[in-house]
């Protein structure tokens, strides 16, 4: 289990590099487009790619953010619980969080397949949309695995 967790965490960090790359790409593309506009030129599709890469930033930083305890929760009540009861509540919240992301991952995959079959593309450059939805499926999938390790850990803590 420990090995599995380490493996997932290494992946989460690699994914986050993709997210960071997407931020730099969005910045560079926007600036280049604005710069070219001075010369009455533009990069077709800048607008749609900024939005689509925005989704890459979030999908691929999701697991890393969870790992860095970056998601916001109201903690003060549970903090007053005993260690065991904290683990028990932790088990339930981690479990339901995991289910949430399993569902989002699964349904994003189906949605991506629907978009692929329907042939939906971006408005200007006609770039396919579905890979970005697959990105969400992938990011949420990794997030589910990470939450699975958390669930197991809380369960162990609760059974102590």
């Amino acid at each position: 289990m420990f090995k599995f967790e380490k493996f997932i965490k290494a992946f989460a960090e690699k994914f986050n590099w993709i997210a960071a790359g997407a931020v730099v790409f969005m910045m560079g593309l926007t600036c280049l487009d604005v710069f070219l506009r001075i010369f009455r030129k533009s990069i077709p599709g800048t607008y749609e790619f900024i939005g689509l890469f925005g989704s890459v930033v979030i999908s691929f930083s999701l697991a890393y953010t969870t790992m860095a305890k970056g998601h916001i929760a109201v903690e003060f009540l549970v903090q007053k619980f005993s260690q065991r009861r904290q683990s028990l509540t932790g088990f339930f919240t981690d479990f339901f969080s995991m289910i949430l992301f399993v569902v989002v991952s699964w349904r994003s995959f189906l949605y991506a397949m629907e978009l692929m079959r329907a042939g939906e593309v971006s408005l200007t450059t006609h770039f396919p949309i579905y890979p970005f939805v697959l990105g969400i499926a992938l990011g949420c999938g990794l997030q589910s695995l990470l939450l699975f390790t958390d669930t197991v850990k809380s369960l162990k803590g609760a059974m102590k």
Partner: peptide, 8 residues
């Protein structure tokens, strides 16, 4: 108050 992330 269950310490689940608010967005989730």
């Amino acid at each position: 108050f269950s310490r689940i992330p608010v967005g989730y």
